[in-house]
Design a protein around this nucleic acid. Structure first.
Lengths: 234, 234
DNA sequence: TCAAAAGTGTTTCCCCTACACCCATGG
DNA sequence: CCATGGGTGTAGGGGAAACACTTTTGA
Protein backbone atom coordinates (compact mmCIF):
# COMPACT_ATOMS: atom_id res chain seq x y z
CA UNK A 1 0.00 0.00 0.00
CA UNK A 2 1.25 3.35 -0.67
CA UNK A 3 4.77 3.97 -1.26
CA UNK A 4 8.30 4.88 -0.74
CA UNK A 5 7.87 7.75 -3.01
CA UNK A 6 10.88 9.49 -4.38
CA UNK A 7 12.08 12.37 -2.31
CA UNK A 8 10.74 14.84 -4.79
CA UNK A 9 7.10 15.60 -5.16
CA UNK A 10 6.03 12.25 -6.56
CA UNK A 11 3.28 12.21 -4.04
CA UNK A 12 1.50 14.96 -5.85
CA UNK A 13 1.11 13.16 -9.15
CA UNK A 14 -2.53 12.75 -9.96
CA UNK A 15 -4.38 10.29 -12.13
CA UNK A 16 -7.93 9.58 -13.18
CA UNK A 17 -9.11 6.26 -11.78
CA UNK A 18 -12.12 4.43 -13.10
CA UNK A 19 -13.88 1.20 -12.23
CA UNK A 20 -15.56 -1.11 -14.72
CA UNK A 21 -17.71 -4.04 -13.73
CA UNK A 22 -18.62 -7.12 -15.73
CA UNK A 23 -21.86 -8.35 -14.17
CA UNK A 24 -22.84 -11.87 -15.18
CA UNK A 25 -26.04 -13.77 -14.79
CA UNK A 26 -27.62 -16.88 -16.24
CA UNK A 27 -30.90 -16.44 -18.02
CA UNK A 28 -32.68 -19.36 -19.66
CA UNK A 29 -29.51 -21.41 -19.62
CA UNK A 30 -27.37 -18.73 -21.25
CA UNK A 31 -24.53 -16.82 -19.62
CA UNK A 32 -25.13 -13.11 -20.05
CA UNK A 33 -23.34 -9.89 -19.19
CA UNK A 34 -24.86 -6.50 -18.48
CA UNK A 35 -23.93 -3.71 -20.89
CA UNK A 36 -24.97 -0.08 -21.00
CA UNK A 37 -25.18 2.19 -23.99
CA UNK A 38 -22.80 5.12 -23.81
CA UNK A 39 -24.44 8.51 -23.85
CA UNK A 40 -21.29 10.56 -24.24
CA UNK A 41 -18.19 10.69 -26.35
CA UNK A 42 -15.99 8.84 -26.85
CA UNK A 43 -17.69 5.74 -28.23
CA UNK A 44 -21.04 7.46 -27.96
CA UNK A 45 -23.85 5.03 -28.70
CA UNK A 46 -21.68 1.97 -28.27
CA UNK A 47 -22.17 -0.66 -25.64
CA UNK A 48 -19.85 -0.69 -22.67
CA UNK A 49 -19.48 -2.15 -19.22
CA UNK A 50 -21.10 -0.26 -16.36
CA UNK A 51 -18.45 1.85 -14.76
CA UNK A 52 -17.35 5.29 -13.80
CA UNK A 53 -14.82 7.39 -12.00
CA UNK A 54 -13.76 6.71 -8.45
CA UNK A 55 -14.71 9.59 -6.21
CA UNK A 56 -12.20 11.40 -4.03
CA UNK A 57 -13.67 10.12 -0.78
CA UNK A 58 -14.68 6.68 -1.92
CA UNK A 59 -12.81 3.41 -1.86
CA UNK A 60 -12.32 1.67 -5.17
CA UNK A 61 -14.47 -1.26 -4.07
CA UNK A 62 -17.20 1.14 -3.01
CA UNK A 63 -17.10 2.80 -6.40
CA UNK A 64 -17.62 -0.56 -8.09
CA UNK A 65 -20.54 -1.36 -5.80
CA UNK A 66 -22.05 2.05 -6.43
CA UNK A 67 -21.89 1.64 -10.20
CA UNK A 68 -23.48 -1.77 -9.88
CA UNK A 69 -26.23 -0.45 -7.66
CA UNK A 70 -26.98 2.39 -10.05
CA UNK A 71 -27.66 -0.13 -12.79
CA UNK A 72 -29.43 -2.92 -10.96
CA UNK A 73 -30.64 -1.28 -7.76
CA UNK A 74 -29.86 -4.40 -5.83
CA UNK A 75 -27.19 -4.95 -3.25
CA UNK A 76 -25.70 -8.15 -1.93
CA UNK A 77 -24.00 -8.98 -5.19
CA UNK A 78 -20.87 -11.09 -5.32
CA UNK A 79 -18.11 -8.75 -6.46
CA UNK A 80 -14.46 -9.51 -6.99
CA UNK A 81 -11.58 -7.40 -8.20
CA UNK A 82 -10.14 -8.66 -11.44
CA UNK A 83 -7.20 -6.66 -12.63
CA UNK A 84 -5.99 -3.11 -13.00
CA UNK A 85 -5.34 -1.89 -16.51
CA UNK A 86 -2.76 0.81 -16.33
CA UNK A 87 -1.44 1.37 -19.81
CA UNK A 88 -1.35 4.87 -21.13
CA UNK A 89 -3.46 5.74 -24.16
CA UNK A 90 -6.26 3.32 -23.44
CA UNK A 91 -8.75 6.12 -23.22
CA UNK A 92 -8.98 8.58 -26.12
CA UNK A 93 -9.71 11.40 -23.70
CA UNK A 94 -6.42 11.02 -21.93
CA UNK A 95 -4.90 8.83 -19.35
CA UNK A 96 -7.28 6.76 -17.30
CA UNK A 97 -6.34 3.83 -15.12
CA UNK A 98 -9.13 1.31 -14.67
CA UNK A 99 -9.69 -1.19 -11.92
CA UNK A 100 -11.82 -3.96 -13.40
CA UNK A 101 -14.23 -6.11 -11.39
CA UNK A 102 -16.55 -8.94 -12.13
CA UNK A 103 -19.79 -9.73 -10.37
CA UNK A 104 -22.34 -12.51 -10.29
CA UNK A 105 -26.04 -12.23 -9.67
CA UNK A 106 -29.07 -14.44 -9.74
CA UNK A 107 -31.45 -13.65 -12.55
CA UNK A 108 -34.64 -13.85 -10.51
CA UNK A 109 -33.22 -11.48 -7.96
CA UNK A 110 -32.24 -8.87 -10.49
CA UNK A 111 -35.66 -9.09 -12.10
CA UNK A 112 -37.51 -8.47 -8.86
CA UNK A 113 -36.38 -4.91 -8.48
CA UNK A 114 -37.15 -2.74 -11.42
CA UNK A 115 -34.12 -1.19 -12.99
CA UNK A 116 -33.25 2.29 -11.91
CA UNK A 117 -31.47 2.73 -15.13
CA UNK A 118 -29.25 5.72 -15.46
CA UNK A 119 -28.96 4.77 -19.08
CA UNK A 120 -30.09 2.19 -21.56
CA UNK A 121 -28.97 -1.19 -20.31
CA UNK A 122 -29.29 -4.71 -21.59
CA UNK A 123 -28.14 -8.24 -21.04
CA UNK A 124 -26.07 -9.83 -23.80
CA UNK A 125 -25.07 -13.44 -24.24
CA UNK A 126 -21.31 -13.63 -23.76
CA UNK A 127 -21.13 -15.64 -26.95
CA UNK A 128 -22.85 -12.89 -28.94
CA UNK A 129 -21.33 -9.64 -27.81
CA UNK A 130 -21.64 -6.47 -29.84
CA UNK A 131 -18.60 -4.30 -30.48
CA UNK A 132 -17.66 -2.74 -27.20
CA UNK A 133 -16.28 0.63 -26.21
CA UNK A 134 -12.70 0.95 -24.98
CA UNK A 135 -11.17 -2.47 -24.46
CA UNK A 136 -14.11 -3.73 -22.48
CA UNK A 137 -14.09 -6.85 -24.54
CA UNK A 138 -10.75 -7.70 -23.04
CA UNK A 139 -12.11 -7.21 -19.54
CA UNK A 140 -14.99 -9.58 -20.24
CA UNK A 141 -12.65 -12.21 -21.64
CA UNK A 142 -10.42 -11.83 -18.63
CA UNK A 143 -13.41 -12.15 -16.30
CA UNK A 144 -14.63 -15.28 -18.04
CA UNK A 145 -11.23 -16.85 -17.73
CA UNK A 146 -11.14 -16.06 -14.03
CA UNK A 147 -14.63 -17.43 -13.58
CA UNK A 148 -13.80 -20.66 -15.38
CA UNK A 149 -10.76 -21.14 -13.23
CA UNK A 150 -12.44 -20.21 -10.00
CA UNK A 151 -15.37 -22.55 -10.46
CA UNK A 152 -12.91 -25.40 -10.03
CA UNK A 153 -11.87 -24.68 -6.51
CA UNK A 154 -14.49 -22.38 -5.04
CA UNK A 155 -18.25 -22.13 -4.79
CA UNK A 156 -18.69 -19.03 -6.95
CA UNK A 157 -21.21 -20.81 -9.13
CA UNK A 158 -23.73 -20.71 -6.28
CA UNK A 159 -23.85 -16.93 -6.62
CA UNK A 160 -25.78 -17.38 -9.85
CA UNK A 161 -28.58 -19.35 -8.18
CA UNK A 162 -31.46 -18.51 -5.90
CA UNK A 163 -31.27 -19.41 -2.24
CA UNK A 164 -33.01 -22.69 -3.00
CA UNK A 165 -32.10 -24.57 -6.11
CA UNK A 166 -32.24 -28.00 -7.67
CA UNK A 167 -29.19 -30.06 -8.44
CA UNK A 168 -30.04 -29.82 -12.10
CA UNK A 169 -29.96 -26.05 -11.90
CA UNK A 170 -26.62 -26.20 -10.16
CA UNK A 171 -25.21 -28.52 -12.77
CA UNK A 172 -26.51 -26.23 -15.48
CA UNK A 173 -24.60 -23.29 -13.97
CA UNK A 174 -21.39 -25.24 -14.14
CA UNK A 175 -22.06 -26.34 -17.66
CA UNK A 176 -22.86 -22.86 -18.89
CA UNK A 177 -19.66 -21.47 -17.42
CA UNK A 178 -17.28 -24.16 -18.56
CA UNK A 179 -19.05 -24.70 -21.85
CA UNK A 180 -19.29 -28.49 -21.73
CA UNK A 181 -21.81 -31.05 -20.55
CA UNK A 182 -21.22 -32.95 -17.35
CA UNK A 183 -22.28 -36.40 -16.25
CA UNK A 184 -25.31 -36.17 -14.01
CA UNK A 185 -24.47 -39.01 -11.67
CA UNK A 186 -20.88 -38.00 -11.17
CA UNK A 187 -21.83 -34.36 -10.67
CA UNK A 188 -24.42 -35.11 -8.03
CA UNK A 189 -22.21 -37.51 -6.14
CA UNK A 190 -19.34 -35.08 -6.03
CA UNK A 191 -21.45 -32.11 -5.03
CA UNK A 192 -23.19 -33.98 -2.27
CA UNK A 193 -20.01 -35.38 -0.84
CA UNK A 194 -18.48 -31.90 -0.62
CA UNK A 195 -20.76 -31.51 2.37
CA UNK A 196 -21.81 -27.96 1.57
CA UNK A 197 -25.34 -28.64 0.39
CA UNK A 198 -28.37 -29.11 2.58
CA UNK A 199 -31.43 -30.87 1.28
CA UNK A 200 -34.67 -29.09 2.09
CA UNK A 201 -38.09 -30.70 2.28
CA UNK A 202 -39.25 -28.57 -0.59
CA UNK A 203 -39.66 -29.73 -4.12
CA UNK A 204 -39.70 -27.74 -7.27
CA UNK A 205 -42.46 -28.72 -9.69
CA UNK A 206 -41.66 -27.68 -13.18
CA UNK A 207 -44.27 -28.82 -15.61
CA UNK A 208 -45.23 -32.39 -16.12
CA UNK A 209 -42.07 -34.03 -14.82
CA UNK A 210 -41.16 -35.45 -11.52
CA UNK A 211 -40.54 -32.56 -9.09
CA UNK A 212 -36.94 -31.96 -8.11
CA UNK A 213 -35.71 -31.63 -4.57
CA UNK A 214 -34.55 -28.19 -3.53
CA UNK A 215 -31.24 -27.67 -1.79
CA UNK A 216 -29.65 -24.76 0.00
CA UNK A 217 -26.03 -23.79 0.26
CA UNK A 218 -24.76 -24.17 3.80
CA UNK A 219 -21.63 -22.01 3.68
CA UNK A 220 -22.24 -18.34 4.39
CA UNK A 221 -20.39 -17.13 1.31
CA UNK A 222 -18.02 -18.21 -1.42
CA UNK A 223 -15.55 -20.69 0.01
CA UNK A 224 -12.44 -22.41 -1.22
CA UNK A 225 -12.66 -26.14 -1.62
CA UNK A 226 -9.76 -28.24 -0.52
CA UNK A 227 -7.13 -27.88 -3.16
CA UNK A 228 -5.62 -30.68 -5.09
CA UNK A 229 -2.62 -29.27 -6.83
CA UNK A 230 -0.95 -30.67 -9.86
CA UNK A 231 2.42 -30.43 -8.27
CA UNK A 232 1.74 -30.74 -4.59
CA UNK A 233 1.25 -32.91 -2.79
CA UNK A 234 3.23 -35.68 -4.32
CA UNK B 1 -11.03 0.01 -19.50
CA UNK B 2 -11.92 3.44 -18.62
CA UNK B 3 -15.37 4.39 -18.08
CA UNK B 4 -18.86 5.51 -18.64
CA UNK B 5 -18.24 8.43 -16.44
CA UNK B 6 -21.12 10.36 -15.04
CA UNK B 7 -22.16 13.30 -17.13
CA UNK B 8 -20.67 15.69 -14.69
CA UNK B 9 -16.98 16.22 -14.35
CA UNK B 10 -16.07 12.83 -12.94
CA UNK B 11 -13.37 12.58 -15.48
CA UNK B 12 -11.40 15.27 -13.77
CA UNK B 13 -11.11 13.58 -10.41
CA UNK B 14 -7.50 12.94 -9.60
CA UNK B 15 -5.84 10.39 -7.37
CA UNK B 16 -2.34 9.49 -6.30
CA UNK B 17 -1.38 6.07 -7.61
CA UNK B 18 1.53 4.09 -6.25
CA UNK B 19 3.06 0.74 -7.03
CA UNK B 20 4.61 -1.60 -4.48
CA UNK B 21 6.57 -4.68 -5.39
CA UNK B 22 7.30 -7.76 -3.31
CA UNK B 23 10.44 -9.21 -4.85
CA UNK B 24 11.20 -12.76 -3.72
CA UNK B 25 14.28 -14.86 -4.05
CA UNK B 26 15.67 -18.01 -2.53
CA UNK B 27 18.98 -17.71 -0.76
CA UNK B 28 20.58 -20.66 0.95
CA UNK B 29 17.29 -22.53 0.99
CA UNK B 30 15.33 -19.69 2.53
CA UNK B 31 12.60 -17.66 0.87
CA UNK B 32 13.44 -13.98 1.17
CA UNK B 33 11.84 -10.71 0.23
CA UNK B 34 13.56 -7.43 -0.59
CA UNK B 35 12.82 -4.52 1.74
CA UNK B 36 14.08 -0.96 1.75
CA UNK B 37 14.44 1.39 4.69
CA UNK B 38 12.25 4.43 4.43
CA UNK B 39 14.10 7.72 4.38
CA UNK B 40 11.07 9.96 4.71
CA UNK B 41 8.00 10.35 6.81
CA UNK B 42 5.68 8.64 7.38
CA UNK B 43 7.18 5.48 8.83
CA UNK B 44 10.64 6.99 8.51
CA UNK B 45 13.31 4.43 9.32
CA UNK B 46 10.95 1.49 8.98
CA UNK B 47 11.27 -1.23 6.41
CA UNK B 48 8.93 -1.22 3.44
CA UNK B 49 8.48 -2.75 0.04
CA UNK B 50 10.20 -1.04 -2.86
CA UNK B 51 7.67 1.18 -4.53
CA UNK B 52 6.79 4.64 -5.59
CA UNK B 53 4.40 6.86 -7.42
CA UNK B 54 3.29 6.14 -10.95
CA UNK B 55 4.43 8.88 -13.27
CA UNK B 56 2.04 10.80 -15.52
CA UNK B 57 3.42 9.33 -18.72
CA UNK B 58 4.21 5.87 -17.47
CA UNK B 59 2.12 2.72 -17.47
CA UNK B 60 1.52 1.10 -14.10
CA UNK B 61 3.49 -1.99 -15.13
CA UNK B 62 6.36 0.21 -16.26
CA UNK B 63 6.38 1.96 -12.91
CA UNK B 64 6.69 -1.38 -11.13
CA UNK B 65 9.56 -2.42 -13.40
CA UNK B 66 11.25 0.90 -12.86
CA UNK B 67 11.09 0.60 -9.08
CA UNK B 68 12.46 -2.90 -9.32
CA UNK B 69 15.27 -1.81 -11.56
CA UNK B 70 16.20 1.05 -9.26
CA UNK B 71 16.73 -1.42 -6.45
CA UNK B 72 18.31 -4.37 -8.20
CA UNK B 73 19.60 -2.90 -11.44
CA UNK B 74 18.62 -6.01 -13.30
CA UNK B 75 15.93 -6.50 -15.87
CA UNK B 76 14.22 -9.62 -17.08
CA UNK B 77 12.49 -10.24 -13.79
CA UNK B 78 9.24 -12.16 -13.61
CA UNK B 79 6.65 -9.62 -12.54
CA UNK B 80 2.96 -10.14 -11.98
CA UNK B 81 0.24 -7.82 -10.81
CA UNK B 82 -1.28 -8.88 -7.53
CA UNK B 83 -4.07 -6.66 -6.41
CA UNK B 84 -5.08 -3.04 -6.13
CA UNK B 85 -5.64 -1.69 -2.67
CA UNK B 86 -8.04 1.17 -2.94
CA UNK B 87 -9.32 1.90 0.53
CA UNK B 88 -9.20 5.46 1.74
CA UNK B 89 -7.05 6.27 4.77
CA UNK B 90 -4.42 3.67 4.16
CA UNK B 91 -1.75 6.29 3.84
CA UNK B 92 -1.35 8.80 6.65
CA UNK B 93 -0.45 11.50 4.14
CA UNK B 94 -3.79 11.25 2.41
CA UNK B 95 -5.42 9.10 -0.11
CA UNK B 96 -3.16 6.83 -2.11
CA UNK B 97 -4.30 3.90 -4.22
CA UNK B 98 -1.66 1.22 -4.59
CA UNK B 99 -1.27 -1.40 -7.26
CA UNK B 100 0.70 -4.25 -5.71
CA UNK B 101 2.95 -6.59 -7.67
CA UNK B 102 5.09 -9.54 -6.85
CA UNK B 103 8.26 -10.56 -8.60
CA UNK B 104 10.63 -13.51 -8.59
CA UNK B 105 14.33 -13.48 -9.21
CA UNK B 106 17.21 -15.88 -9.10
CA UNK B 107 19.65 -15.14 -6.32
CA UNK B 108 22.81 -15.61 -8.36
CA UNK B 109 21.53 -13.22 -10.98
CA UNK B 110 20.73 -10.49 -8.53
CA UNK B 111 24.15 -10.89 -6.94
CA UNK B 112 26.01 -10.47 -10.19
CA UNK B 113 25.10 -6.87 -10.67
CA UNK B 114 26.04 -4.65 -7.79
CA UNK B 115 23.13 -2.87 -6.25
CA UNK B 116 22.46 0.64 -7.40
CA UNK B 117 20.70 1.27 -4.21
CA UNK B 118 18.71 4.41 -3.92
CA UNK B 119 18.35 3.59 -0.27
CA UNK B 120 19.32 1.00 2.25
CA UNK B 121 18.00 -2.33 1.08
CA UNK B 122 18.11 -5.83 2.47
CA UNK B 123 16.74 -9.29 2.01
CA UNK B 124 14.58 -10.67 4.83
CA UNK B 125 13.38 -14.20 5.37
CA UNK B 126 9.61 -14.16 4.90
CA UNK B 127 9.31 -16.06 8.15
CA UNK B 128 11.20 -13.37 10.05
CA UNK B 129 9.88 -10.08 8.83
CA UNK B 130 10.40 -6.88 10.78
CA UNK B 131 7.51 -4.52 11.36
CA UNK B 132 6.65 -3.00 8.05
CA UNK B 133 5.45 0.41 6.96
CA UNK B 134 1.90 0.94 5.73
CA UNK B 135 0.17 -2.40 5.31
CA UNK B 136 3.00 -3.89 3.35
CA UNK B 137 2.81 -6.95 5.52
CA UNK B 138 -0.58 -7.63 4.04
CA UNK B 139 0.81 -7.33 0.53
CA UNK B 140 3.53 -9.84 1.29
CA UNK B 141 1.05 -12.28 2.76
CA UNK B 142 -1.16 -11.86 -0.25
CA UNK B 143 1.79 -12.42 -2.58
CA UNK B 144 2.81 -15.57 -0.75
CA UNK B 145 -0.68 -16.94 -1.00
CA UNK B 146 -0.75 -16.26 -4.73
CA UNK B 147 2.66 -17.84 -5.14
CA UNK B 148 1.64 -20.96 -3.23
CA UNK B 149 -1.44 -21.32 -5.37
CA UNK B 150 0.27 -20.59 -8.62
CA UNK B 151 3.07 -23.08 -8.09
CA UNK B 152 0.43 -25.79 -8.45
CA UNK B 153 -0.61 -25.09 -11.98
CA UNK B 154 2.16 -23.00 -13.51
CA UNK B 155 5.92 -23.01 -13.78
CA UNK B 156 6.56 -19.88 -11.73
CA UNK B 157 8.98 -21.75 -9.50
CA UNK B 158 11.48 -21.88 -12.35
CA UNK B 159 11.85 -18.12 -12.13
CA UNK B 160 13.76 -18.58 -8.90
CA UNK B 161 16.41 -20.76 -10.51
CA UNK B 162 19.34 -20.17 -12.83
CA UNK B 163 19.03 -21.15 -16.45
CA UNK B 164 20.59 -24.50 -15.63
CA UNK B 165 19.60 -26.23 -12.44
CA UNK B 166 19.57 -29.60 -10.77
CA UNK B 167 16.39 -31.45 -9.91
CA UNK B 168 17.29 -31.14 -6.27
CA UNK B 169 17.43 -27.37 -6.60
CA UNK B 170 14.07 -27.39 -8.32
CA UNK B 171 12.56 -29.55 -5.62
CA UNK B 172 13.99 -27.27 -3.00
CA UNK B 173 12.26 -24.26 -4.58
CA UNK B 174 8.94 -26.01 -4.37
CA UNK B 175 9.56 -27.05 -0.80
CA UNK B 176 10.56 -23.59 0.32
CA UNK B 177 7.45 -22.06 -1.19
CA UNK B 178 4.92 -24.56 0.05
CA UNK B 179 6.67 -25.11 3.36
CA UNK B 180 6.69 -28.89 3.35
CA UNK B 181 9.06 -31.62 2.24
CA UNK B 182 8.35 -33.60 -0.90
CA UNK B 183 9.22 -37.13 -1.88
CA UNK B 184 12.28 -37.12 -4.14
CA UNK B 185 11.28 -39.97 -6.42
CA UNK B 186 7.73 -38.81 -6.91
CA UNK B 187 8.85 -35.24 -7.52
CA UNK B 188 11.38 -36.20 -10.16
CA UNK B 189 9.02 -38.54 -11.95
CA UNK B 190 6.27 -35.97 -12.13
CA UNK B 191 8.54 -33.14 -13.23
CA UNK B 192 10.14 -35.20 -15.96
CA UNK B 193 6.87 -36.46 -17.30
CA UNK B 194 5.54 -32.92 -17.62
CA UNK B 195 7.79 -32.75 -20.65
CA UNK B 196 9.07 -29.24 -19.96
CA UNK B 197 12.57 -30.11 -18.77
CA UNK B 198 15.53 -30.82 -20.96
CA UNK B 199 18.50 -32.70 -19.61
CA UNK B 200 21.83 -31.13 -20.51
CA UNK B 201 25.14 -32.93 -20.70
CA UNK B 202 26.46 -30.79 -17.90
CA UNK B 203 26.85 -31.85 -14.33
CA UNK B 204 27.03 -29.75 -11.25
CA UNK B 205 29.78 -30.80 -8.82
CA UNK B 206 29.07 -29.59 -5.36
CA UNK B 207 31.62 -30.82 -2.88
CA UNK B 208 32.35 -34.42 -2.29
CA UNK B 209 29.15 -35.95 -3.57
CA UNK B 210 28.16 -37.40 -6.85
CA UNK B 211 27.66 -34.55 -9.34
CA UNK B 212 24.07 -33.76 -10.26
CA UNK B 213 22.81 -33.51 -13.80
CA UNK B 214 21.82 -30.04 -14.93
CA UNK B 215 18.52 -29.40 -16.65
CA UNK B 216 17.10 -26.46 -18.53
CA UNK B 217 13.53 -25.30 -18.80
CA UNK B 218 12.22 -25.72 -22.33
CA UNK B 219 9.22 -23.38 -22.25
CA UNK B 220 10.05 -19.78 -23.09
CA UNK B 221 8.32 -18.34 -20.06
CA UNK B 222 5.92 -19.19 -17.28
CA UNK B 223 3.28 -21.55 -18.62
CA UNK B 224 0.08 -23.02 -17.33
CA UNK B 225 0.08 -26.74 -16.82
CA UNK B 226 -2.95 -28.67 -17.87
CA UNK B 227 -5.49 -28.10 -15.19
CA UNK B 228 -7.09 -30.75 -13.17
CA UNK B 229 -9.99 -29.12 -11.48
CA UNK B 230 -11.75 -30.33 -8.44
CA UNK B 231 -15.10 -29.91 -10.05
CA UNK B 232 -14.47 -30.33 -13.71
CA UNK B 233 -14.19 -32.54 -15.51
CA UNK B 234 -16.38 -35.12 -13.88
C1' DT C 1 -50.22 -44.09 -21.11
C1' DC C 2 -46.80 -41.18 -22.48
C1' DA C 3 -43.38 -37.56 -22.38
C1' DA C 4 -39.92 -35.43 -19.78
C1' DA C 5 -36.87 -34.64 -16.27
C1' DA C 6 -35.45 -36.69 -11.47
C1' DG C 7 -32.88 -39.77 -9.33
C1' DT C 8 -29.72 -43.69 -8.41
C1' DG C 9 -24.60 -47.76 -8.36
C1' DT C 10 -20.99 -50.18 -10.10
C1' DT C 11 -16.82 -51.20 -12.55
C1' DT C 12 -12.59 -49.83 -14.61
C1' DC C 13 -8.55 -47.50 -14.87
C1' DC C 14 -5.13 -44.32 -13.91
C1' DC C 15 -2.61 -41.46 -10.96
C1' DC C 16 -1.06 -40.41 -6.54
C1' DT C 17 1.37 -42.25 -2.62
C1' DA C 18 4.49 -44.64 0.12
C1' DC C 19 8.69 -46.64 0.51
C1' DA C 20 14.69 -48.25 0.50
C1' DC C 21 18.75 -49.07 -1.63
C1' DC C 22 22.88 -48.42 -4.76
C1' DC C 23 25.92 -44.83 -7.20
C1' DA C 24 29.48 -41.45 -7.90
C1' DT C 25 32.50 -38.30 -6.12
C1' DG C 26 35.91 -35.65 -2.96
C1' DG C 27 38.14 -35.60 1.05
C1' DC D 1 37.07 -45.96 2.70
C1' DC D 2 33.64 -43.14 4.11
C1' DA D 3 30.50 -39.37 4.14
C1' DT D 4 27.34 -36.97 1.30
C1' DG D 5 23.84 -36.06 -1.75
C1' DG D 6 22.41 -38.15 -6.64
C1' DG D 7 19.69 -41.24 -8.67
C1' DT D 8 16.24 -45.11 -9.46
C1' DG D 9 11.23 -48.79 -9.45
C1' DT D 10 7.17 -50.89 -7.75
C1' DA D 11 3.05 -52.19 -5.47
C1' DG D 12 -1.36 -50.73 -3.46
C1' DG D 13 -5.23 -47.70 -2.89
C1' DG D 14 -8.41 -44.07 -3.94
C1' DG D 15 -10.74 -41.11 -6.76
C1' DA D 16 -12.22 -39.93 -11.44
C1' DA D 17 -14.68 -41.45 -15.48
C1' DA D 18 -17.82 -44.06 -18.10
C1' DC D 19 -22.15 -45.94 -18.41
C1' DA D 20 -28.39 -47.12 -18.37
C1' DC D 21 -32.41 -47.82 -16.20
C1' DT D 22 -36.32 -46.82 -12.90
C1' DT D 23 -39.29 -43.21 -10.74
C1' DT D 24 -42.49 -39.52 -10.51
C1' DT D 25 -45.41 -36.29 -12.21
C1' DG D 26 -48.82 -33.61 -15.48
C1' DA D 27 -51.04 -33.65 -19.57
Amino acid sequence: MSTNHPQHNGFLLKHSIAVDVALFTIQAGILKVLLVKRENAPYRGMWALPGGMVGPEESVDAAALRELHEETSIGNIYLEQLYTFGEINRDPRGRVITVAYYALVNWQQVQLKAYQRVSEANWFAVKRLPDLAFDHRRIIDYALERLRNKINYTTVAFQLLSREFTLTQLQSSYEVIIGTRLDKRNFRRKMLQLGILKATRQFHANGRQRPARLYTFMAPKVIKLQEKGIIVPF
